[in-house]
Design a protein around this nucleic acid. Structure first.
Lengths: 239, 239
DNA sequence: CGAAGCATTGAAGTGCGTCAACAATCGTGG
DNA sequence: CCACGATTGTTGACGCACTTCAATGCTTCG
């Protein structure tokens, strides 16, 4: 049920059987949510966190003027709102991008777990710091990379992150976002996303059809994106 | 010495005398650093964190091609690299923007403190989450706001953050950045920063000279920026 | 006093946005 | 199972916010 989450953690550090059991016990309930559902509203008081088990979700901010910007993408195994564990509310909405299955983790339950096993608190603190590193990399993309390089970077990041949880093969992965959603992640217009996607295909780097991403030339894609995965802290076995 | 830091914490929650003493004791050494100094190199192994006492610093990423992007600004009272406490390295450099005074906090010392007073660990976890919220707001600025609105937003944010630590008056604050550094924070060219600054002045919103920011029309500035300070979690007394 | 960095201005170029139309696909109810 | 509206994807023409390049004056500080 939460195997993706455990894979994500174990990619960074050792998790004992005791710790695994504690994590499992913190999930009190799982829930299926349909694509498009608004799961958490910006500012609302939270007393549980949501662990994404299946599907994709995103943190988004809606602006006056109708535009929407994605600030982070959640893939299976990610917590959507670990920030809410300490701050008790989010500064963004969380929406389901696809049909999804989430595990509910009441804060008081999580608190018991991290009190009893402080190392787990430490690990989750680390995870929120990795989330922050991902957001910083998005800052770089938005400020410094061209549309095509930005999109290439997103594809690289997602394939790395999905690979960790077993959701990507060597040459691609599921990619259920519409071009509109992609544009919201990248800070571009739909029109320009469409053209940029065509250019990536024309260059023989990726193909994207039927909600399936195929990476035809990974080296070329990573070069275009200037992708350096170290910000994902994937090979960190010393937490 | 660390009064700015304590003001920052106390703006969000209660800090007992015992906790204050523990924080003070964690700072083993203070150090003066000159403007421009590279303090932490991306990826290097860290065994202490740096608390900014006086001056401004920034987290920056240098890109191939020579451009540099600021990912966060540290003001007095901020930790520059609390992320390093859990992850043991940063995904960005940290540089001093002005002459600065920093307090060194060895990680094992900080670890002792948070072990003995877990509530402090909780509070610092919250602080890293607030840092992440600030970075997310930067994402919004870069992706969705025009140059002038983006700059207005930065001025609003800084005046709020400085006000918390006693570094801002009602109509302005110190602002020691050059236009080049400002351009690196905003993801703009120096030329455009210059013109945008003139436009802000022409509209009677702010003035910036002699490293001094004067806010002539705060309501107008905040309206232009669509500034909403809730992402700073300033009125959170329930941590 | 000279050099190096910083601020300012103008002219010209471009990457991406905006607007508008249409085609393809999906989902739903009849 | 088909009909039909809604969503998604695609294309073209045009505009503009910001960049780029280049030059010049202004500080600052050894």
């Amino acid at each position: 049920m939460i195997t993706a989450h455990l894979r994500k953690l174990r990619r960074r550090t050792h998790i004992s059987a005791d710790e695994e059991q504690a994590i499992r016990s913190a999930v009190t309930e799982t829930r299926n949510v349909p694509a498009g559902r608004l799961l958490i509203r910006c500012g609302e008081t939270l007393n549980h966190s949501m662990l994404l088990i299946e599907g994709w979700m995103a943190g988004v901010k809606d602006l006056q003027g109708g535009s929407r910007q994605g600030t982070e993408l959640q893939l299976p195994g990610d917590f959507a709102d670990l920030q809410g564990f300490t701050l008790k509310s989010l500064d963004r909405d969380v929406v389901a991008l696809t049909n999804a299955k989430v595990g509910l983790v009441p804060h008081d339950r999580l608190r018991e777990v991290t009190d009893r096993l402080p190392r787990l608190g430490w690990i989750y603190w680390s995870m929120t710091n990795i989330d922050a590193a991902i957001t910083r990399e998005l800052v770089i993309s938005l400020a410094q990379r061209s549309a095509i390089s930005r999109m290439a970077h997103l594809f690289c990041e997602i394939s790395y992150r999905l690979e960790v949880v077993g959701g990507a093969s060597k040459n691609g992965c599921d990619f259920p976002l519409t071009q509109r959603e992609l544009s919201e992640c990248l800070g571009l217009t739909v029109v320009h996303v469409n053209r940029t996607l065509q250019e990536l295909r024309r260059r023989g780097l990726v193909e994207l059809e039927n909600r399936q991403l195929t990476i035809r030339d990974r080296a070329g894609l990573e070069a275009l994106a200037e992708f350096d995965p170290s910000y994902l802290y994937l090979d960190q076995h010393r937490l």
